[in-house]
Nucleic acid binder design. Structure first.
Lengths: 260, 260
DNA sequence: CGCTGAGTTGATGACAATCAACTCGGGTGG
DNA sequence: CCACCCGAGTTGATTGTCATCAACTCAGCG
């Protein structure tokens, strides 16, 4: 299974050592004892860099790798034959993406880099082996899955039962707090603002709306002085009002994070 | 932690023995070797019966038990303060419900019986202990979570990007095939029809619609001869057309089931 | 026999999609 | 350096899907 060099760029020379990895404290291998880290290191390929808009994997392929996102933003989405795209989750550094239990079956969603990203790739075959060897790893994965499902449920509540304004507010708050929670890994994070690479089309596809309607709705939110999105930067101007509008619960997004 | 006898009815006398359980082949403990089943049996409380509309647990409570659904239908849903209800998943026999990794935190959704149901209750404290002891169990739980997330993603794609008609068609097909897959456990399952306890309001709450609109949309589907829903029974009259309309993929729902 | 809850149907209105034209800012290449 | 180009975002006009409100039917049941 050779790496597809059209998509991937191997990080020149100095891949991070797992033992020194700053992301590890957030990631799948957090609980792994140092003496076991050689496992990790052994099955890990090099780190890869991916340019914005390139895909990490695509729905329909049987997955060969699972990835720990090391830096950057990733959109995970499904497409329907009639052209629609539904982003079900944005991944941030520390997130583990592309893993599914039945590794033989094709995966049902795609993952696309929204910024330049760095990932650590783990061949799923090896990963499954290690999961058998290290039970602590399985339990960690359970924690992560459990949290993923929680975010997924909340997102579904948004899309199914909230107005466009509420959905947008909710997504802003979720991403704002997720980024702030890993702030030291995210460049340009400030007290009330974060770097924010999403286009209005990305937002629309995550919220089940059109980009045109996101534009109008966003205008309402900014006119009311709740948020500001300019120059790829999101600023929360009135968090209480926004939280109230969106019916946002920080605890669900942050305190339940399996790795904080 | 006493059982709340307002909600639960202890099954008189003859609770099923885990070793003989017909559901076990589908459930969390499938992989567990017989000599370990005493574990299961030991931590399991009695089986409980719950009447329709009663709740198994409610959002906001820290969960004390997780449950294997033994018989009947369950709706898992969230409510938003302004009255909306979003059913994110229907549970069928064999499904494992109410488990979350961080057992100290309040759960973020509720579970309600749609029919009379029987469940096997496992105290989460004990469950976490057993998960540490039996790695095979952790891996099984990973499989189940992985599948749950898959269904959740598909559901989100429906709600976010499909028309009312497509959503309804998709849900019918999903439930039809899930029920048929465990047909021997579901009374009244036939070649092209299943027992179907959902009201139009349940459907609406699962699809992000109103019951009024479900009524109209369902009429369209029946007028076109695709399905029939009468006397609490769902009949699929034209599966190819329905599958095409809904963009339904049986493989995702069935072949990927972790326990079949 | 009337009560009740679920479902149906019609009329109306709100929210979001669609179509289209236009602006704006950031590259790129001459 | 400027002109041009391009993609993203904005705005307006219109349409369409679905929500809302309300009245009514109907089957099941005490």
């Amino acid at each position: 299974m050779a790496i597809n060099y059209d998509n991937f760029i191997v990080k020149p020379g100095e891949s991070t050592q797992c033992a020194q990895c700053v992301v590890r404290k957030l990631a799948l291998f957090q609980g792994v004892k140092l003496e076991n880290l050689e496992w990790t290191q052994a099955i890990r390929q090099e780190q890869f860099i991916l340019k914005p808009k390139r895909r990490l994997f695509e729905e329909g392929e049987p997955p060969r790798y699972a990835y720990t996102l090391f830096s950057g933003w990733v959109a995970q989405y499904q497409t329907s034959p009639d052209g629609g795209r539904m982003i079900h989750q944005f991944a941030l550094p520390g997130d583990f993406i592309g893993f599914q239990a039945k590794s033989g079956h094709p995966i049902d969603y795609s993952a696309q880099a929204l910024t330049e990203i760095t990932v650590c790739a783990f061949p799923v075959k090896e990963l499954n082996k290690v999961l058998k060897e290290l039970p602590e790893l399985s339990n960690r994965l359970i924690d992560m899955h459990s949290h993923t499902i929680k975010l997924c449920r909340q997102h579904m509540l948004s899309v199914g039962r909230k107005s466009a304004k509420q959905r947008l507010a909710y997504l802003f708050l979720e991403l704002f707090h997720r980024v702030k929670a890993i702030g030291d890994l995210m460049p340009g994070t400030e007290e009330d603002s974060i770097a924010f690479p999403l286009s209005q089309e990305d937002l629309a596809d995550a919220l089940g709306l059109t980009s045109v309607h996101v534009s109008r709705t966003l205008r309402e939110l900014t006119d009311e002085g709740l948020v500001s999105v300019r120059h790829r930067r999101l600023t929360i101007l009135n968090e209480p009002a926004l939280t109230d509008l969106a019916q946002f619960d920080k605890a669900i997004v942050i305190q339940d994070h399996p790795l904080l």
